[in-house]
Amino acid sequence: MIFTHNAKVVRACLYLILLVFCLFYLMPLYVMITNSFKPLSEIRGGQMLALPDIFTFLPWASAWSTAQIGVEPTGLRPYFLNSVIMVVPAVAISVVLGALNGYVLSKWRFKGDRIVFGLLLFSCFIPFQIVLIPMAKILGVIGIAGSTPGLVLVHVVYGVGFTTLFFKNYYEGFPTELIRAAQLDGAGFFRTFTRILLPSSGPIIVVSVIWQFTNIWNDFLFGVSFSDLDSMPITVALNNLVSSSTGVKEYNVHFAGAILAALPTLVVYIVSGRYFVRGLMAGSVKG
């Protein structure tokens, strides 16, 4: 039974290594969480890794509602709401448009459809920085510069390329005969989409929503470029909170604020993460 004994040792080593990696990756999160519950004096004492002696919610409360952001002592709350108001329509619109694009490009082929798809795909690879100035100009012309609708538009335009790619690949594997059967049954363009395709699109909708949500929520560059005080998303507000140069650096408040800003994407991943991989795989394996 030497063999199994060896196998056990190997297995133990394996788990040990995995555990070390886990700890390594979890360390920053640990530091953030523990320090966000400490009074500032404890952090200044140099005990970054220790658990809090005095457990306090004050930094969280401060980060949420009273911390100085720019010139106003509002906390992150209004900016969190700004982000929500921006993200929800941006995700919804870009996913709906992507689904429709994917449906048309895979099942209602038209002359030049490859070129259209190619251009949409190309838009995924354009670096953000290149479009900043032209986009600012366009937002100015339309008259929605520095507003939430402006940010929504920017994110929809940028996201549609990705969502189209996701949905097109997914629908490519969807049997065309089903579309034809629906046509013969008398279902039109939209009815076929809503009754036949959408009910089978769960996984790819989840993928698109996660992808769009995390990208838009975490975006900083567009947020800092195209928003003003009333529409500033939380990423920009967090930056303003952390990098304000006056007064004392309240690390515990900063940690709490950073966690607050990251919380929604974390929740989205935890709730629907397992569909994410499944959905990404679905398109490729089926074909």
Binding site: P175, E177, R180, Q183, L184, S200
Partner: peptide, 20 residues
């Protein structure tokens, strides 16, 4: 005429049943 208006019904090779 559109397929739906031709008064025809079709049985497909793959059956094409709506999975949902």
């Amino acid at each position: 005429e559109a397929p739906a208006n031709r008064d025809i019904a079709m049985v497909f090779q793959s059956y094409a049943l709506y999975p949902n």
